[in-house]
């Protein structure tokens, strides 16, 4: 079996759910962590360092019985902006879309500004996404500071 066929089989080998494909190699575990935070019971299968179509390596995550919405997918966008999401039903890909940066993140990340009021109050954090050239920044709705995406990628859970 060629590498490509083996890869295709991995993508389609769940009955229904979501396959997140083309995750940059090394980022799979980060995404896994965030998925488990959202749903600790979810059944996950993970492929790390799989051969990618364009050469190089990728990670891949299969999620049983959970069909991602675009907003579920958007939460992963900072970690794997070029990943694709495949929605599977009856072993077939019924919908495929790229993970895209959303306009805003609500209740997903902590504000890196430790003096931001969101750390002390029962309120969802809100960040608007400022994308210019290759740099992505997130601006806090409350403290109005903008932070490089790397600050969010390094941080743990909310």
């Amino acid at each position: 079996m060629s590498a490509m066929n083996r890869d295709k089989m991995l993508v389609e080998a769940i009955q229904s759910g979501t396959v997140v494909d083309h995750i940059p190699a090394g980022k799979g575990l980060t995404i896994l962590g965030r998925l488990q935070l959202k749903n600790a019971e979810v059944r996950l299968t993970v492929g790390l360092n799989l051969p990618s179509h364009g050469g190089g390596l990728k990670d891949l995550i299969k999620i049983d019985e959970w069909r991602f919405t675009e907003s579920d997918a958007a939460e992963m966008a900072l970690f794997a902006p070029r990943a694709t999401v495949n929605i599977i039903e009856d072993y077939r890909v019924v919908r495929k879309f790229p993970i895209g940066l959303p306009e805003r993140f609500v209740g997903v990340f902590k504000c890196p500004n430790t003096n931001c009021i969101t750390h002390n109050e029962p309120v969802d954090t809100r960040f608007s996404v400022l994308a210019a050239d290759d740099a992505v920044k997130l601006k806090c709705h409350y403290c109005e500071r903008a932070f490089a995406d790397s600050l969010f990628i390094e941080q743990g859970s909310l």
């Binding site: 003096n115 009021i117 309120v123 409350y142 403290c143």
Partner: peptide
């Protein structure tokens, strides 16, 4: 208020106008 973002938060929960007289190092 000494914390940034406090005035924005207050405006969202108050039913009357809020005027910011300084929220930490922000505005």
């Amino acid at each position: 208020h000494p914390q940034e973002g406090s005035a924005r938060l207050a405006a969202e929960v108050a039913g009357v106008p809020v005027i910011n007289g300084g929220d930490g190092a922000n505005q």
